[in-house]
Structure formats: C-alpha cells, structure tokens
Nucleic acid binder design. Structure first.
Length: 434
RNA sequence: GUCCGGAUGGUGUAGUGGCCUAUCAUGAAAGCCUGUCGAGCUUUCGACCCGGGUUCGAAUCCCGGUCCGGGCGCCA
C-alpha cells in the first residue's frame, strides 16, 4: 500500500473534482484568518492545500494551521481548478493527518529563503536534500547512471563487481585505508584496475563496473574526496583510440539523456544544458605543454605532471571537453603501454573538462615480460603483484580501458561549485559523519 | 601539509576599543486579517567558538587552541 494517489507534480487543473491523497512535507503555511494555505512538498514539487474556515470548521482549521514546518503529512481532498492558485489548482482537504511532526527550530531552511553554508548543510544533510535544487542534482545523477548503463549494455559490455577489500597496496604510490580483516591486514581498494584487467585474461572481453573507490590521500580541495564512485570500462582487442571513442560517447550520451529526460530538474536548478559534441579535441601532452608555455609563461619541464595552473589555463583556452594524449611514460602507471618506437611516451590519455580532469585511461601493457619490467622501473616489487601477473602468463588479450569519476562528471555537468554537492554523504579529510 | 581568510540568536548576517541592554533578514511563540503564492501588520523570544593576555573598558586588539571556507601541494 502506498499512502498517496498522486505526487503534487502530477496534479493538473484538469483533475478538477477528483479525490486525491497527497503525502509529503509541510513546506510552509500561511494563515489569513478566514482562509489558510498549507503548501505540501514532495519529490515532484509543491501543491497548495486551501483551508476555508467556514468549510472545514474551526477545529480542523486551527489544528492544520499549527502543524510545524517540515512535518510529514498525508492530505486527502478534492482537486479544484482555481486560477488564483499556483499552477491553476488547489486541494480542498477533507482530512489532514500528521504522520510525523517536525521539531522546531529546524537545522536549516529548506524553503531557501535564507542561505546556508555547506558545512551546516552537510551536518543536516537529510534536511538539505529536501531542498528542491539539491534533490534535483541527485535525481540527475541517477539519470546519468541509467544512461551510462544503457549505453554500456547497448555496446554489449558486461557489468561486473570486483572486491573492495584487497590484500595489498596493489598499485603502489597512493595511500590506502588499512582495515582489519580477521587475523590479516587488508585495505580498501583504490581502483578496480587490476581486477578488470584480470577479467580480460578471463575472457570476459568487455566489462564495466560502477562502484566505490577509496583513497587515503590528505587532499583538501573542492574536487577531491576520499570515497568516490568510479565508472570503469575495460575492453579486449581494443586500443586506446577505440576506448577513447567509447568514453566520449558515454559522456555525450549522459548529457543528451539528461537534457531530454530531466527538464524539470534542470529547470529547478536554473540550467540550460548544452550537449557536448563528439569527437572531442585531441591534444598531446607535448602540444599542451607548448601551448601553456607560449601563452602563459608557465615554467614546466617536459616530463612534469601538469600542475593545476596549467590545467586551468588549458581548460580556459580550449573551452570544451578535450583529450590529453601521449603522456610521458614516467608519469603514467606501469600498466600503461609505451609506444614501441618511442618508449618515453605512452598510450595513456586523460579526458578533461575545462574545469578539471574527468577520466583517465590507456592502452594497457598485455605482455607479461614488459609488465614485469615496467613494474620494476617504477620501483615496485613484482612479487607483490603475483596474483595479477599470473593472469598475464596464460594468454592475455591486448586491451584498453578507462576510469571516469561519476561525481566530477555530474559536478561539471551541473556547474556545481564543490564536489561535495554531487555526493549524498561525502567523505573527506575531516568528515566521517553523517 | 602549507598559505590566506573566517567563527555573532535555529539559519544567513551587520558591527575595527566606550554610541552594544549587539543590526537586519529568516525563524519560533501569541494575536489580527477570506486569495495568499518569499503574504501583510502588532507584540514577544533567541547569539558574540574556547582559554589566556592588553586596557579604566574587548564581539572588536594580542597570544594559544579548536572548528570552518578558499588557494596550492599531495592525487595508482
């Protein structure tokens, strides 16, 4: 049984005379003496409940008018087409039931009359999400996920899950969160990278995974989190160019789907979504460096990773999504395939939004001996990768893939200032609650 | 980690040594009002992050701490 017959957004003046049951939160009440209005809010919008004292009687009038804001109510009543009411209709109630009263004062103002700081909002996130513009972002995020899954299914890519609890710091470098696993030490996985590659060795051919990744880096910016959702793809018998086109197709598809299916939410957020056009521009690392040094006088040596200033400069110059390709092998992970004729650069790429990096990927090393060599070059011990290397000794298809940050995709799509706005309950250097 | 900025009613803020019994908005409580739609009007309630110092006097200046925001760094 569902305690409502309609969402407020589903009601139109054409339903005049119909009995409906709405359920939701008390957005606000306005008492004018002989007539009072209660505005009910649910996920699809607002509905005005009109109480005429003469019609409903003194007792009901008084009890409804004193329901505290944000209380949960169920309203049974009749739809009345009414030009004076918002959206041309109102509900004349026969029964208003308080299912759960809200305490006062509220930890923040869900009607958005008063601004609220991010920290306050996150402390009372459940109430923050009641705000229509916040809810809209998460509904759009869900639409993005739906569109990406549909896109992957159409491309015959198999959805998989890989372990989030792992035995070792598999890729070296980044800091992992240690956890206790019975009598053993374990870690929260930083990336499904090694597992999705092993699935290429398993003959799964084309896989994708959407799941959490964990990084214990002490970064403190508006675009980093310690727990994030990663969208990972790995494709056998494909090269870097092929997976780049799958990646740009995925991004375009997400934008297109949201533009076509989320007009209500985009309206709530005041956004006019421009769908990017594929193919995205391709720029090599070396070209990017030249562009940056010529125009901005940035002091970067070939072989340095791009700093934030350079990244931002490139974003401003280019002004749309673009790929950075042919990176120095020295700054990409060991599993990135170097060019055969020019091993100092590799088939790694980053997908960039003008504001930040969205994804990175590569054609992978599939040759066992080269992989061992690359691991050693990075100063890592191949012994620690035996579970992974084993999959490369018995026939490993050539393969390529990428990982895309969901929150960054949503954040850039919706022009959100802070990545925390794109995560329901963000985990950062300081925040573990709620 | 580091640099810069900040912390005032539930929320968002004004206030740079005495004019602060602390401003405004929102909110809450009570009342008036039959068409509100950020309703209006009247009355009331509610705050200077913690510790130390300077001073006749500190929300305001200084020191330490805690927390928050922004930049950078870190980021397979």
């Amino acid at each position: 049984m569902i305690l409502r017959t309609h969402y407020s957004g589903d009601i139109t003046p054409e339903l005049d005379g119909r009995e409906v049951v709405l359920a939701g939160f008390v957005h606000e009440t306005r008492d004018l003496g002989g007539i009072a209005f209660l505005v009910l809010r649910d996920r699809k919008g607002l509905a005005q409940i009109t109480l005429v004292k003469k019609l409903v009687g003194k007792d009901m009038f008084k009890s409804v008018r004193t329901i505290s804001r944000e209380s949960v109510v169920q309203v049974r009543g009749q739809v009345k087409a009414e030009p004076k009411a918002p959206r041309g209709f109102e509900i004349l109630p026969t029964d208003v039931r308080v299912l759960s009263a809200a305490q006062v004062p509220l930890p923040l103002d869900p009607t958005e009359k008063v601004e609220c700081e991010l920290d306050t909002r996150l402390d009372a996130r459940f109430m923050d999400i009641r705000r229509p513009c916040v809810l809209a972002a998460f509904e759009i995020e869900s639409a993005v996920l739906r569109s990406l899954r549909n896109y992957f299914y159409r491309q015959k890519i198999t959805e998989v899950f890989t372990p989030k609890i792992v035995a070792a710091a598999t890729e070296g470098g980044t800091d992992l969160f240690p956890i206790s696993y019975f009598e053993k030490e374990a870690f929260l996985n930083q990336s499904p990278q090694l597992y999705k590659q092993m699935l290429m060795g398993a003959g799964m051919d084309r896989v994708f995974e959407i799941g959490p990744i964990f990084r214990a880096e002490e970064h403190d910016t508006r675009r980093h989190l310690n727990e994030a959702i990663s969208i990972d793809v790995e494709i056998s018998f494909a090269d870097d160019k092929e997976v780049m086109s799958i990646l740009e197709g995925a991004v375009v598809e997400a934008y297109r789907y949201v533009a076509e299916n989320c007009s209500y939410q985009l309206g709530v957020m005041g956004l006019d979504l421009q769908v990017p056009k594929a193919p995205f521009r391709r720029i090599t690392y070396t070209e990017a460096l030249e562009l940056a040094s010529e125009r901005a006088g940035v002091k970067m040596q070939w072989g340095d990773d791009l700093d934030t200033e350079t990244e931002r400069f490139l974003g401003e110059s280019i002004g749309e999504h673009y790929f950075l390709t042919d990176w120095p092998s020295s700054i990409k992970p060991y599993y990135t395939l170097p060019y055969e004729d020019k091993p100092e650069i590799c088939r790694g790429f980053d997908l960039m939004h003008p504001r930040m990096e969205l994804a990175s990927g590569a054609q992978r090393v599939h040759d066992y001996n080269l992989l061992v060599e690359r691991i050693k070059e990075k100063g890592l011990d191949p012994g620690g990768f035996e579970f992974y290397l084993k999959a490369f000794r018995y026939g490993m298809p050539p393969h390529a893939g990428w990982g895309l940050g969901l929150s960054r995709l949503v954040m850039t799509m919706l022009k959100l200032e802070n990545i925390r706005d794109a995560v329901l309950f963000p985990r950062d250097r300081r925040r573990l609650v709620p």
